[in-house]
Nucleic acid binder design. Structure first.
Length: 221
DNA sequence: GCGACAG
DNA sequence: ATCTTGTCGC
């Protein structure tokens, strides 16, 4: 798919904050998905050589069957350090390289990380979603910001994630007996709809099939 | 100033 | 994220 660069990726933290604040105005948290959703993509990262090389993997699955349709891999030098709150500046460049090679344009992208459950409401799922203009969801394995009540140990149960008085996402139990995941809107999707898609992409394990397959690709050497 | 802190 | 042995449970 064709991707148009929105800004440079070699920048200071101050410049990164400015970009986040500016682009966050473009984030849409209401449902604007292509119906029916036929293809769902998962994105994940891996690193080599002490983190100096970034590897991005994309897996496109059919929906709701969740059968693998296409994959893509990209490697490039890592150009930004890991700083909580600025993950997208470290990971998106390689992800865009991988997405450019894909033929099937996904209707929805599940990202490994937060959506609007972020200090400035602009996590990696928002950043990627806005750049490619495709609905996206943030599915993180741990908390960045916010707090929540305890969760029943039942698949599908969830609790709102609250940050500074706002509901920024949900803590969702995708499987009994394991830690929950943190779901938040990335772009062009509401929280209730995001929760629904995450559950439908998580038939067996804690993480979505999309990210599990992308993770396997990014790790396979 | 003191903690917290996606991957 | 990555480095790593054994161990628990289906």
């Amino acid at each position: 798919m064709k991707i148009s660069q929105r800004h440079a990726w070699t920048l200071s933290v101050e410049e990164a904050i400015a970009i986040q604040e500016q682009m966050q105005a473009e984030v849409i948290t209401s449902d604007q998905l292509q119906q029916p959703v036929q293809y769902v993509a998962g994105v994940d990262m891996g690193f080599e050589a002490d983190g100096t090389i970034s590897r991005a993997a994309v897996a496109v699955l059919s929906f709701p069957e969740l059968e693998l349709q296409e994959t893509s891999l990209a490697r490039r030098p890592t150009s930004f350090p890991y700083i909580p709150g600025f993950l997208s500046f470290r990971e998106i460049p390689a992800v865009l390289d991988a997405l450019e090679k894909i033929k099937i344009t996904p209707d929805l992208i599940l990202c490994d990380g937060q959506g609007i459950a972020h200090p400035r409401r602009f996590g990696i799922a928002c950043h990627l979603g806005v750049i490619v203009n495709i609905p996206s969801i943030g599915v993180a394995k741990s908390l960045l910001v916010g707090k929540h009540e305890e969760l029943p140990d039942t698949r599908g149960s969830w609790q709102p994630l609250i940050h500074k008085g706002e509901i920024v996402g949900a803590v969702l139990r995708t499987r009994v007996g394991v830690k929950p995941v943190y779901v938040s809107s990335g772009h062009r999707i509401s929280l209730p709809t995001a929760i629904d898609y995450v559950l439908r992409c998580t038939p067996k394990y804690r993480l979505p099939e999309t990210t599990r397959i992308a993770d396997k690709l990014a790790s396979d050497r």
